[in-house]
Amino acid sequence: MRSRPMRWYGPGVSPLRPGAIVATFLACASVLSLGCRAKSRPDTRPYSEAQRRLLQSADPEERVRVIEKFLAGPAEEGKTYVSLLEEGALVAETELNDPDRAESLYRLALTESRGSRRSRLVELSYLEWLGKHRDAAFPAAVDRLQEGEPLEAWDHLRISDAALAASLWELAELHAQQALELQDTADIGGFALLNIGWAEANLGRPEQALRSFQSADRLLPRHFAGLSPSPLDLYWGQTHLLMGNDDAAIDRLLPEVVFRGNEGALRALELAFEREHGSAAGLEGALSAYQQEHAPPAPDFTLADYEGVSHRFSDLVRGKAAVLVFWFPT
C-alpha cells in the first residue's frame, strides 16, 4: 500500500526563511507514518540498528558515519531510508557546517537507490535540497525526474515547493498547475493554488495571486486561532504588501507573528506597519493587544504516562505556565 505523503512543510517555511526546517519536517513526516509499522517488526532491521546507534551518540561526525553506513548497506525501501538520509544531511549541514558532506550523502543514496522503488523518493528529496541551496543543477534534476514513471500530483507539488524555495517561479507555477490537473483531494488543490498564487505574486501578477489565495483558503483547513497549517497567510500578506495594501497585509500577518513568531512575517509586518502608521513604534503594543484578544484556551484531555498513571491536562497546568510539546523519538 502506498501511503499518502504528508504535507512536509510547516507554516514557517517560505522562500523568505529557508533552512533546516524543511528537512526536519520531512524527517518528521516519514517517522510519523512509520509509527505502527516499526513496532511489529524485529529490532534487527538496519533502520532500527541505525536508530539505536544514533540514540547512543551525540557526536555529529559519528552520527553521519552511522547514517552513511546505513545508506550504503542492505537498507529497506522507502521512507525510512529517506528519513535517515535527510537526518544525516541535516546533521552534516547544521552541526558539521559541511554542505558538501550533505550533498555526498545524497549522491551516495542516489547511487544506492538506482533502479529500486525508493529511487523516486530519494530524487525528490535531493531536489528539495538543491532548491534550498538555489543550486544551478535544479532544472536538470527536475528533467531527470520527469524521464521516469509518470509523476503523481504530490510529486508535482513537492517539485513546485522546492522550486519556490529556489525562487524559480515559472517552474513552481508549472508544477503546481500539473498537480492541480491531477488532483484527487481538496488539500492537493489547496496547496497547488497556494503555490500558484505565490508564484503569480512574484511574477508580477498580484491580482491573480489574490484570487488564487481565496480559492486555496476554501480548500485548506484552519486550525488553532484560525491559523493555516500552510504558509497561506504569509504569502497572502506579503502579496498585499507588494500591492501597497498595508492594512490588509497587517491583518494577514499579525496572527502569524503573534502566535507563531514567524520571522519572515515579522519583517513584512514591520514594513507594512511603518508605511501605514509612519513608524513601527506602536507595533509591540499592537502585537500584545492582538494576543490578549485572540489567544484561544488550550483544549483539555486526559492521558496516561508510561507508568500507566492517568493525568488530566487541566489539573497539571492549573495556575501554572506550561509548555506542551508534541514529539516523536528521534
Binding site: G19, F224, G261, A295, P297
Partner: peptide, 24 residues
C-alpha cells in the same frame, strides 16, 4: 499532523505562543 510542535500556555490556560516546527 507533523512534529515537533510546541504550544506555550499561560497561567490562565490560554495558548499564547505556537512553534509549529523546531528551527535553530
Amino acid at each position: 499532523t507533523f512534529c515537533p510542535q510546541t504550544f506555550l500556555i499561560d497561567r490562565n490556560g490560554r495558548i499564547l505562543h505556537y512553534h509549529p516546527s523546531y528551527s535553530p
